[in-house]
Design a protein around this nucleic acid. Sequence first.
DNA 1: CGTACCGTTGAGGTGAGTCAAAGTAAGTGG
DNA 2: CCACTTACTTTGACTCACCTCAACGGTACG
Lengths: 230, 230
Amino acid sequence: MREVPFRTADAAILEQSTLVRNFERGDKIFSEGEAAAGLYCVRSGVALLSYRDAFRADKAVRMVGSGDLVGSRSLFAEEPHITTAEALTACHFCFFPKTTIVRLTDSYPLFSRLLFRKLARDRGSRNALFIREQHLPVRFRFIHFLRMMQKRDGITNGDGGVCVKLPIMRRQIASLLSARPESVARAITELEREGLALFDGRNVTIPDPGALYRIVDDAAQRGGHERHYS
Amino acid sequence: MREVPFRTADAAILEQSTLVRNFERGDKIFSEGEAAAGLYCVRSGVALLSYRDAFRADKAVRMVGSGDLVGSRSLFAEEPHITTAEALTACHFCFFPKTTIVRLTDSYPLFSRLLFRKLARDRGSRNALFIREQHLPVRFRFIHFLRMMQKRDGITNGDGGVCVKLPIMRRQIASLLSARPESVARAITELEREGLALFDGRNVTIPDPGALYRIVDDAAQRGGHERHYS
DNA sequence: CGTACCGTTGAGGTGAGTCAAAGTAAGTGG
DNA sequence: CCACTTACTTTGACTCACCTCAACGGTACG
């Protein structure tokens, strides 16, 4: 919302009613079952959306970072949050109270239209990703996860390599990938053995990102490793 | 949109600009890659959304029926359709041209709000279902599919049993379940052997729906058969 | 210095995918 | 109306990725 062209008056209203909320690592931004108080937009930091499944285990849904809109579904559906959002690092969020959103959508059709577009595009990319990930081998899903992490806050080191610090533990990575921690550990071991990625706790070094990502891209293109589906 | 309370004037506009479009079995409502011309609402019949994957195989995404809104993502994102919609039975669709939608959202904030809500709720239920389905055994996913079919247009026969005619072939069912046709065939054989469902081509008879669905419900509640996840 | 949790490794089992072949339904042309 | 083609469905045999269970090393904390 911040980056789209917007009339000065509208932008001013938005700016005026914006609350910046800060969270420390471990803080809950909102919890499953709560009513939606407004719309959150991640300004910096990383948060994890998760829900508690039938067996009372936390299931990670997705990670959100800078630029992501959070809580829109519950807000517009007028239904309770179905996920809990927890700060994984120190986070800054813009918070737009429900009243602000209502006022803006009521007064400025353009705002509605931009919001519609933003949400539709979000959803689209998410779906596309999701669809592509589904039922690929854990190894590929994990590489894809690394790529997202690297895009989000990877640091290039002199010789073409990239370093990332993963903000979550193995168990949560596994949950995001819909796999088990043991499988993630094995994927890690394998990548390490091949020299494609080096792991030191939560710190990852990818000597040649191109080589790593080519694995999944090639497979996707040639349909070679894509199991299932007709 | 039809069932929500709406001011008479607005409803009139909507009514005025509504085009009813009829499709025969096999007709394409829209195709992947086309620009979105408007919003479709299923009035009757069943259609299948699918896309062509990297290996040029059709991958079914979801089935839509009475009351479902179709094409909203591409319309609001102002991006081409990412799926093809094909009529599986004779279908009646309400079509709201883009101009109508724009006019209404521009003139009537209430319309925007209702639309936001409708879309958010759609997405919510879909996501919830989707999340739950992911990585359950094919058997469970298939039972869940049967349940949806039965809800949509199952016919109760005297003795508590239910009959449904599946509008799609095994290959497409498999695609919807993210499984292979062989696996679906095996699930069918198994259910038949257990007497939980009887299959005759595309016609299914479920003698005791309660017993069938209890299988997945119990498993979901006790977390017993839920593989993966932490 | 235990207690607790995370992460990794090994052994073993299994759901479901692949391949191949036979059976069935459906549409086409003579 | 029947042979023929074509596509859909089912079954069996085999394989493999990943889950499960279990054990062990590392790090943190009381």
